[in-house]
Nucleic acid binder design. Structure first.
Length: 425
DNA sequence: TCTGGGGTCCTAGGACCC
DNA sequence: TCTGGGGTCCTAGGACCC
């Protein structure tokens, strides 16, 4: 048996823990640059605000009523860690799937106790973190997702729903569930399924797996098996190292200035390098991408990326920044107003298992040692003294790429200075 | 004025090899 | 006139997730 534990309206719930006045109000949390609504309270959903809706396109009446907050990822990340620490007390096997969702294995537990365990888990998380969660119990991940959705939307379940593969309740739920609402089935696939007459989750479950595989892919075939109660989806351990590392941001305002793009690329490359060293990997290539704003009709568009391979795998910020700078040099064109840029580290290898080439073997030990000590010192300072204590290149004020986040709440759980602001301010 | 960011997996098709 | 066939590796692009 698998349990899917999912926090309700996670970002909004985190904000409410520290600002109880938000209870009962239509609350939304915005993406970077305060661009889109990425989390909605029940009340905001009831007003008809869609997931991902651009803030500036919301009807004025809704913008007046709603409380729209900038995102505060330091806070959400910390709350997420607290929830997972509690989940670990309920199962030896917790797969953290995303910032607000985890799968727990309940294999080997007495089946008759599962719902009670689920309720106890909910109560414990609620008491210790203030966050509301729902629990879906089922033999497979796809069905656990369906169960979790039922736990959230059907009051009679009281936040915990258990579905057997062949229960009449399961059948009834699947018959009412549009196929596009299933985990792993999105618009494109749902449209193609509809052409075959498959519109509900139940119809997909009853479809011929071989036909589904031939027509679509092995991915959708697995979903058919999962709906029937045969586990077919194995999640890779989410704590495994990433295979690529990406840092990108939209600018606070459009810019055609080369030096502004260079500054942003430098910043993103440095951040990506930190992530790379944290997972103890080396990159063999650096990609930089630039974008203009595709929503501006009549504006000249330029979207492109350039990959610069490295002579040797590296995690040295100076090397990665130089490659990123070179890539931007090949990309940048005068006369465009750019909206976004990003840096991606590709072709990652484990630093500990990396095969030494002849060149590496000859490279003096002291040079490598110096690089490692320097990067370790930079990371330590930034970790302990705060981000950007040490940085590469000079910061500029009023830069185009500074994020707008005018409505961010204090980082209550990770910043003493902001906590004090709350008390005195 | 203002439209997110960071990932994964799978498949098709080309290059290349014997 | 007739111009193999099968395997592997790599990459780009599509689709999906939260």
């Amino acid at each position: 048996m698998i349990a899917l534990v999912d926090c309700n309206n996670f970002y909004v719930s985190c904000e409410r823990v520290f600002a109880p006045r938000l209870e009962g109000l239509p609350v939304g949390v915005l993406s970077n640059n305060d661009g889109c609504v990425v989390a909605r309270s029940r009340e905001l959903k009831a007003l008809g605000v869609a997931m991902g809706a651009p803030r500036h396109l919301l009807p004025p009446a809704i913008r007046r009523q709603a409380v729209l907050l900038s995102s505060n990822y330091a806070l959400y990340g910390d709350m997420s860690r607290r929830v997972n620490a509690i989940l670990a007390e309920f199962s030896p096997d917790v797969e953290v799937y995303s910032i607000d969702e985890s799968f727990l294995s309940f294999a080997g537990f007495d089946a008759s106790t599962l719902e009670v365990r689920g309720q106890r888990l909910r109560e414990t998380v609620g008491r210790d973190t203030g966050l509301p969660v729902c629990v879906g119990l089922a033999p497979t991940r796809v069905l656990a997702k369906v169960a979790n959705r039922a736990a959230k939307t059907i009051a009679a379940y009281e936040g915990v729903c258990r579905l057997g593969a062949d229960d009449p309740a399961t059948r009834a739920l699947l018959q009412r569930l549009p196929v596009g609402a299933l985990w792993g089935v999105a618009r494109r696939t749902a449209e193609r399924l509809a052409l075959m007459g498959i519109e509900t989750a139940w119809q997909l479950r009853e479809a011929d797996p071989k036909l589904i595989r031939r027509t679509f892919s092995v991915v959708l075939e697995r979903i058919v098996w999962e709906l029937r109660g045969h586990a077919a989806i194995v999640l890779e351990d989410m704590s495994e190292p990433r295979q690529r590392i990406m840092v990108s941001r939209s600018f606070g305002r459009l810019t055609g200035e080369r030096h502004e793009l260079e500054a942003a690329v430098r910043q993103h490359a440095a951040r990506a390098a930190e992530k790379l060293r944290r997972q103890r990997y080396l990159a063999r290539a650096v990609m930089v991408m630039v974008r203009t704003n595709r929503f501006l009709a009549g504006e000249a568009q330029h979207n492109n990326n350039v990959v610069v391979p490295l002579a040797r795998p590296s995690d040295d910020s100076r090397t990665l920044l130089a490659a990123a700078r070179q890539a931007l040099g090949a990309l940048f064109r005068e006369g465009y107003r750019y909206q976004k840029c990003g840096v991606m580290l590709l072709d990652l290898v484990d630093a500990r298992h990396h095969q030494l080439t002849l060149y590496d073997a000859r490279q003096s030990e002291s040079a490598k040692g110096r690089s490692q000590r320097l990067m370790a010192a930079v990371d330590k300072l930034n970790r302990e003294m705060g981000r950007d204590t040490v940085r590469f290149g000079l910061p500029r004020h009023h830069n185009a790429w500074a994020l707008r986040c005018e409505r961010r709440s204090p980082r209550y759980t990770t910043r003493w200075d902001e906590l004090m602001t709350v008390r005195t301010g």
